[in-house]
Amino acid sequence: MAGIALPRLSAPSLPGSVVLSFLVLAVVLAWSLFPGLFTQFDPYVGDTSQKLLPPSLRYWFGTDHLGRDLLARVVHGTWASVTSAALAVAVGLLAGGLIGLLAGFLGGWVDTVMARLVDVLLAIPNFLLAVLIVSAFGFETTNIAIATGVSSVAVFARVMRSEVLKTGSAVFVEASGLLGGSRWHVLLRHVLPNSSRSVLALAVLHFGTSILTIAGLAFLGYGDPPPAADWGLLVASGKDYPSSPWLVFLPAGVIVVTVLAVNRISRWIRHDD
C-alpha cells in the first residue's frame, strides 16, 4: 500500500496510451537518427514548379513556397529539435539537481544561498531570460537550448530539494544512520534512489516543455536561420502563407503529438498508472 516501487518495466499491464506514447517517441527518435529512411525528398532543395501544394499521396505534408516537401523538412528538422530539447533538460537537470541536492542535504547557509539563487532564476521570466541569453551570446539553436535549460534550473532545484528533504527525514534514512551508514552512504544509497522518481518524471516533462519553448524561440527567430528546419521555424515560415494552412498546422501537429506522448510518459512515471 505504502510502497513506492519504481514502475515495473516488465509489467504486462502497461496502459494502452503509454504504449502508444512510447511508439510515438520511437518514431521521433528514428526520424532524428535516420531521416533518410523516412523520406526520399531533399529537405533543402525544392522543385519550384511544385510549390505550395496541399498534402497528397506524393507529398504527405504538402510543399512549401520553394516547392520543398514539408514532411522531409519536418523529418530532417527532428534532430535539431530533439537534441536541443535534450540539451536543455541536461542543463536543467544537472545544474538544478545539484543545487537542490546540496541545498536539501547540507541545509544551513548553503540552503539559504541556494534558495536566493533559485528565487533569482524564478524572478526573471523564463522566456525573457532565454531572449536575454540568446541576445548576449548569439542567435543560435544551441544557445536557445542552453538558455531554456538555464531557465528550468529553478524548477529542478526546487523539486530535488523538496524530494531530498522528504526522503532525508524518512524513518528508513535515520535507521540507516543507526545501522552504521555514513552520510555519503545514506545520500547515495537511500536518499537519491528514493528521490529519483519525481525528478525523472520532471525531466521527461521538461523534455516536452523544452520542445515547446525552443519551438517558440525559434518561431521568434532566435534560433539558427533558414534554411534550417527546426520545428518552430517551420511553423514561423509557414505562417506567412495563410492560404496554405498545412504549412503551419502539420508541423504543429507533430510538435503537439510528440509533447503529448512525452507528457503521458512523465505522468506514468510519476503515478505508475
Partner: peptide
C-alpha cells in the same frame, strides 16, 4: 553495534527501493 532500534511503523522504516 550493541544498541539497536526497532521502529514503530514498518511501513516507513524500510527503504522501499
Amino acid at each position: 553495534r550493541d544498541l539497536q532500534l526497532v521502529y514503530q511503523n514498518p511501513f516507513t522504516s524500510l527503504d522501499p527501493t
